[in-house]
Design a protein around this nucleic acid. Structure first.
Length: 371
RNA sequence: GGGUAGGUGCCCGAGUGGCUAAAGGGAGCAGACUGUAAAUCUGCCGUUUAACGACUACGGUGGUUCGAAUCCACCCCUGCCCA
């Protein structure tokens, strides 16, 4: 165990909702939960610099070991003294294992018991990643939190396929823990089981039997309806150790985050704020908006009234719309800042309301905002 | 004045007798995106109609033909070359 490096303090469980607020201590700072973690696949949050991340007060970001293994290679990052030195970033970093690529690179991979054969999407070069190899890669990269190498099943998915993927994930988890030796890195196991309640329950139990710093729920937001996602989280989360952080992988929209928090989730990540920013849309309390739309042509107001993000403090919708339409990359930067701030700020507000035992009020407020 | 290349929908541009409301871009309008193969992808885009359809359209006018953006005649305009 990594008790000298990691500690989770569960500060409060909202009396009305069961939502949780806590502190996760890492070798690179304390993370206030619930938290939204921006995704920086290639060791940068797309369109942003470390300066932006500091301004946003990001406490932890993600990177992807599969992508970094291909380029610049994990060994190069190790030569540079690990990912924190590599990208000159001193806050916490989490790397995904490559498990999600097992799911998303459908036509470029071949899953076997030993591991997965992948083709580099850019060059076609074939590579092999096993649980042991994933651990080695992630230990070379050197993030604070590393993820188990799992198999994420698609939606929809037959019971048989879901079961096979889940059981393999469990066997791989055993191998991950055996291969994981660095004490200053926390290895999070991942619950699978697709959208079958009994599989999820079984997986949650198996995963919980491993002594870990935190636990993740994977395999959601792969195209399923919201109510199914919520049901899965609802039956899975309570089966995970109470006094450990719970990470819902790949989620999501502002509403998804609140849906997760109220079901006892502490950590989230999603590409949505940054990808949608690059594609021209931004979050508001009244839902997602598209900056290129004509309605914003002469709109002198910020993206969101009262928003304290740097973008909203400095620029109008009309200006950002113009930048987007003439394909100035700065538009994507400005929208990324806003979107990430929006989700991080939502989690800050959630945290405060949980500490006050009134998360229900915030939750209901959001529901009515959207109507 | 002579020669030559051309004039196509908002713009660029393909098309040289029917399969053409007319390829493909761009612009415009709208939409999608959930552990990032994504600064990407999708739909609409002459007028009218809910739609079927109807109407108008390939510089202009006239002609050949069952049928013309495409062939013929004359005219107008533009680029380039020579005087």
């Amino acid at each position: 165990m990594n008790k000298e490096f990691f500690k989770f303090e569960l500060l409060n469980i909202c009396k009305k909702t069961g939502a949780r607020a806590g502190l996760l201590h890492t070798p690179h700072g304390v993370i206030e939960t619930p938290v939204f973690m921006p995704v920086g696949t290639n060791s940068t949050v797309k369109m942003l610099t470390n300066h932006h991340l500091k301004e946003l007060n990001a406490q932890i970001i993600l990177a992807n070991s599969f992508h970094l293994f291909l380029r610049p290679t994990d060994t190069l990052i190790k030569e540079f003294g690990g990912i924190h030195k590599w990208m000159n970033y001193d806050k916490a970093i989490l790397t995904d294992s490559g498990g999600f690529q097992v799911f998303s690179l459908t036509n470029l991979r071949d899953i076997k018991e030993d591991g997965v054969k992948f083709k580099d999407p850019k060059t076609g070069t074939e590579h092999f990643i096993s649980p042991e190899r994933s651990m080695e890669i992630q230990q070379n990269i050197g993030a604070d939190i590393i993820m188990a190498f799992d198999e994420c099943a698609p939606y929809p998915c037959s019971y048989e396929d879901a079961k096979v993927a889940m059981e393999r994930t469990h066997r791989w988890l055993e191998r991950c823990f055996k291969a994981h030796t660095k004490k200053d890195q926390a290895l999070f196991p991942i619950v699978q089981g697709a959208f079958y309640d009994d599989l999820r329950i079984e997986s949650a139990k198996v995963i919980s039997s491993f002594d870990a710093v935190g636990y993740a729920i994977g395999g959601v937001s792969v195209g399923e309806p919201t109510d199914i996602k919520n049901r899965i989280v609802e039956i899975t989360a309570p089966l995970l150790p109470v006094n450990k952080p719970r990470y819902l992988m790949g989620v999501g929209t502002p509403e998804d985050l609140l849906d997760g928090v109220i079901r006892g989730i502490d950590m989230f990540d999603c590409v949505m704020p940054t990808r949608n920013a690059r594609h021209g849309s931004f979050f508001t309390k009244k839902g997602r908006k598209i900056i290129k739309n004509k309605e914003f042509e002469k709109d002198a107001e910020p993206l969101e009234e009262g928003c304290q993000c740097w973008t909203c403090q400095n620029h109008s919708k009309a200006y950002i719309r113009h930048l987007y339409r003439v394909q100035e990359p700065t538009a994507a930067t400005l929208l990324s800042i806003h979107n990430i701030y929006f989700l991080m700020n939502l989690m800050r507000q959630a945290r405060q309301s949980i500490l006050n035992n009134e998360f229900d009020t915030l939750y209901q407020q959001w529901q009515s905002n959207l109507k």
